[in-house]
Write a protein that binds this DNA or RNA. Structure first.
Lengths: 340, 340
DNA sequence: ATGAAAGCGCTAACAT
DNA sequence: ATGTTAGCGCTTTCAT
C-alpha cells in the first residue's frame, strides 16, 4: 500500500464529467437545478477518481471547519478517556472531527495547543482533565466557545459539565442506611484533593441527616489499594466499631476488602463496602464484587459535546451544570441470593 | 468568556500596520527582506489583533496540513492510550496535530473515518487497536502513508510497529529460570487470541531450550483476575507441581497471587509469578508487587509517529517492525532485601 | 440547465 | 524594501 494516487480536485471531476467546476460542485452538493443525468455523470466521475472534497478549501468559504479541539488539562487518562469517547461519539454524529491535545499539566504546552487549535480554526473547544477541581479558564477571551467537562472553570460564566459528587455520595450513604448500616466509616484520598473534600463533607452531612454520625473522622490518605488496606488496619487498631465503609474510590475499597478478609471480617455481612468511580476492572474483580458510584463520564462527554454544538450554533449554556451519579449495586453491600 | 472577538485575517494585520498583505505575510513568516522596523511593526499589529494564521488557507498553498489522523480499530482503551500519547508526543514536537477517530470495531464507521480524514487532507494516518493481531489494511490504496501501531496489517508491505511478544516471553522465562525455577506453569487468555497463542508457544519453546517442559499444558481462559484465581485452583486440584507461573497478563497474575495466598502458598518463595503488560495499577497493588513484562506502548506510539513523519517526507519503512519488551522486576519473583 | 467569475485567507513569484 | 498579482480548491452569485 502506501502513498499512491494523488488527491483529485473538483476540477478533475468536472473535466472528466465534461462540465464546469461550478456545475460539478452543485452536482456533488445537491444544490442548484441540474439534469438528473448530469448529476449522476458527475457523481460517477467523482467515484472513479476517488474524489474527496478538500474540507480546508471548503472551510475558507463557510467559515466553519466542522472540527473541535479537545484539550486535557493534565494527561489522557482513566477519567478523560470516557469523556473523550462520549464527546467523540456525539460529535461524530454531527460530522465533526476531534483534535486531541494532551496538556500534560504544563500551562505553556496548553497555551501552545490553544494557539494551534485557533490557528486550525476549530469551531469550539472542550477542556477536560483528571480532577473535578475548578481550574482557571484556558484564556480570558476566545473567538470560539469553550466547554469544560468533568473539570470545571473557575469563571462561573463559563460552561462546565461536572458530575454531582455530592449527590453521588448521598446515594452511597442512603444505600448503606437502606441495608441497615448505622456505623459508617469513610476512607478517602488526599485531604487537599477537591473530590476527597466534597465527598467527605457530603458523607458526614448525609449521615447527620439520618441522626447519626460517622463511625470515625474521615481518614484521608492516597487513592490507592495500599492505603485502603492500611486504613482498615487503622480502624481496627483504633477500636472503631463500624459496619460499613464508604470509600473515596474503588481502589481504596478494594484494598479495604482485602484487608477486612485478611482480618477475618466478612464483606458484606460484617462490613459493607461502597466504592466510587465504578471502574469495571476494579469493581468486578474485587472480592466480593464492589458496589460503587458511577459518574457516567461518557454521558458527561456527550453532554459537553452537545452543549458545545449548541453554543457553536449560537445557543450557549453558560454556568456550571451538575450531572447525576448512579449507584451500581454489587455484592459488597448486598449478599447474593438475598437482595435487600 | 465565551464567543468574543472575530478571527483576524492577515489583511487586518496589514491594514493596521500600514503595509500590504504580501509584506505582512513575509514579516510574520520571517521570509523575504524587510526592514527590521517593519517586521516588528507587523508583529505588533498581529499581537494586538490576536492574529493566528488560518492554517487551512495556508494548506491550500503548501499542500500539507501538518495534521495526521489516528484511528483505533476497536475502541480507545488501555492499550491504545499509551500508543496515542506517545504518538501525540512525537507529532506535537513536529508541530503536527492529531485527529482522533474511534473505530468501535465497526468497519463502516472506520471507512467513514478514513473518508473524513482524507477529506481533511491529513498528511498521514496511524492505525492502532487493542490487540496485536494483524488486521486487513484500512484501504487497498491511499493517497497518504499509513502506519500500524501495536496492531499490524496483514499486508506485509504495510508499515507496522509491534511489540516483540515472543521476545518478551523469553525474557520472562529466562528470569524465572535465573531465579531457580524449573517447574513453570503458564496461564493465559482465550485460546483463539493471538497474543495468548504467541506467548504460550514462545514460553513452551524457551522452556524446552532449557531442557525442561512446562509444568502443565498452558491453561487458556479469560484475561481476568477471576480466571487467574480459578486457574490456580485447577493447577492445585490437578496435583501439578509448580514453582512458578508465567501469566498471560497482569490481571491473571494478580488473581493467581490472591488464590495462591489463600491456598497457603507463599509468593515468591513457593511460587514465583510473572505477569504481562506491566499495568502499574495492577502490578503495584498486587500482593506482593508483580514482576511483569512491559511492551513500552508509548515508545511504540512514538516510533510509529516518527516512521509516519519519515514516510510523509518521502522515506517510508515498509514492513513489520518488532520492538523489544522489557522485564520489570518486583517482589513476586524476587523477595525484598534479598535480590537475586 | 449550465457556465463564468469573484472571492474565501494565504503565499510566492514577480514588479517596482 | 515593499507592493501587486496570480492561484491554491472550493462555493456561490450572476449571466446566459
Amino acid at each position: 500500500m502506501g502513498t499512491t494516487e494523488r488527491h483529485a480536485t473538483i476540477a478533475d471531476v468536472a473535466a472528466l464529467a465534461g462540465v464546469s467546476v461550478g456545475t460539478a460542485s452543485k452536482a456533488l452538493n445537491g444544490r442548484g437545478s441540474l439534469r438528473e443525468e448530469t448529476r449522476t455523470r458527475v457523481k460517477e466521475a467523482a467515484r472513479q477518481l476517488n474524489f474527496e472534497v478538500n474540507a480546508g478549501a471548503r472551510s475558507l468559504h463557510s467559515g466553519r471547519t466542522y472540527t473541535v479541539g479537545m484539550i486535557t488539562t493534565d494527561t489522557i487518562g482513566r477519567f478523560s478517556i470516557p469523556v473523550l469517547i462520549g464527546a467523540e461519539d456525539a460529535l461524530g454524529a454531527g460530522q465533526m472531527s476531534v483534535f486531541l491535545c494532551d496538556g500534560r499539566d504544563d500551562p505553556i504546552r496548553e497555551q501552545y495547543h490553544v494557539k494551534t487549535l485557533l490557528s486550525r480554526r476549530v469551531d469550539g473547544i472542550i477542556v477536560t482533565g483528571r480532577r473535578t477541581q475548578a481550574r482557571a479558564p484556558i484564556a480570558p477571551v476566545l473567538p470560539v466557545p469553550v466547554v469544560y467537562a468533568f473539570i470545571s472553570s473557575t469563571d462561573p460564566e463559563d460552561c462546565s459539565i461536572v458530575p454531582d459528587e455530592e449527590g453521588g455520595t448521598r446515594k452511597a450513604i442512603e444505600h448503606l442506611l437502606a441495608v441497615g448500616r448505622t456505623r459508617i466509616a469513610h476512607v478517602t484520598g488526599p485531604e487537599h484533593h477537591h473530590s476527597a473534600q466534597v465527598r467527605a463533607a457530603a458523607a458526614a452531612e448525609r449521615v447527620a441527616e439520618a441522626g447519626l454520625a460517622l463511625a470515625a473522622p474521615p481518614l484521608f490518605g492516597a487513592w490507592s489499594e495500599v492505603w485502603g488496606r492500611q486504613s482498615v488496619g487503622i480502624l481496627l487498631a483504633g477500636g472503631t466499631e463500624f459496619d460499613a465503609i464508604y470509600c473515596g474510590n474503588d481502589q481504596i475499597a478494594r484494598g479495604a476488602a482485602d484487608a477486612l478478609r485478611a482480618a477475618g471480617r466478612r464483606v458484606p455481612e460484617d462490613v459493607a463496602l461502597v466504592g466510587f468511580d465504578n471502574w469495571d476492572v476494579m469493581a468486578e474483580s474485587c472480592q466480593p464484587p464492589l458496589t460503587s458510584i458511577d459518574m457516567n463520564l461518557e454521558g458527561l462527554g456527550r453532554s459537553a459535546a452537545e452543549m458545545l454544538l449548541a453554543a457553536i450554533n449560537g445557543a450557549p449554556s453558560p454556568g456550571r451544570h451538575a450531572r447525576p451519579c448512579q449507584l451500581v449495586v454489587r455484592e459488597s453491600t448486598v449478599p447474593p441470593h438475598r437482595p435487600a
